[in-house]
Amino acid sequence: MGFLDNLKTKLSPAKDKVGELAQQHGEKIDHGVDKAARTVDEKTKGKYSDKIESGARKAKDAVERLSHKKDEGGAPPPAS
């Protein structure tokens, strides 16, 4: 068994736990991402608004995928 296989095996329980947490606290995570994005946008005076918005959207999508994996037994939702 190679290094990456060993690593995947050891991280599998953590991945499951992250999925559970994303499912339970998805709204709180989304709120935190929005708050962080607003703060960063204010600090940069709107200079990077498009990039910040894009990053926040990707973070929210990742949380949603994690929570759906737990719901659907491992099958991620289709990419939009």
Rank of each mutant, 00 (worst) to 15 (best):
K70F: 12
E42R: 03
V18C: 02
A79V: 12
D71W: 04
S12R: 15
G26L: 01
L4I: 09
E42N: 14
K15G: 08
E53H: 06
Y48C: 05
P76E: 01
S80C: 02
D71A: 09
G26R: 06
D34C: 00
A22L: 06
L4E: 15
K45D: 15
L11A: 08
V33K: 00
D71C: 09
I29E: 02
Q24V: 01
T9A: 15
G26I: 02
K43C: 11
P78Q: 13
S67N: 09
G74V: 01
V33C: 07
L21D: 00
N6P: 10
T9V: 09
E42Q: 14
N6D: 12
I29T: 03
A59Y: 00
P13N: 00
A37S: 02
G26S: 04
G26V: 05
V18K: 03
R65F: 01
R38I: 03
L66W: 03
E72W: 09
S67P: 03
D50N: 12
S67Y: 03
G74L: 04
G55M: 09
D41P: 02
L7W: 10
T44H: 05
I29R: 01
K60Y: 01
K45T: 08
A79R: 15
M1P: 15
E27R: 00
K51R: 11
A62S: 15
P78T: 12
K60E: 02
H31P: 05
E53Y: 05
E64D: 08
A56R: 03
K17N: 11
K28L: 13
S54T: 13
K51D: 14
A59M: 08
F3G: 13
H68V: 05
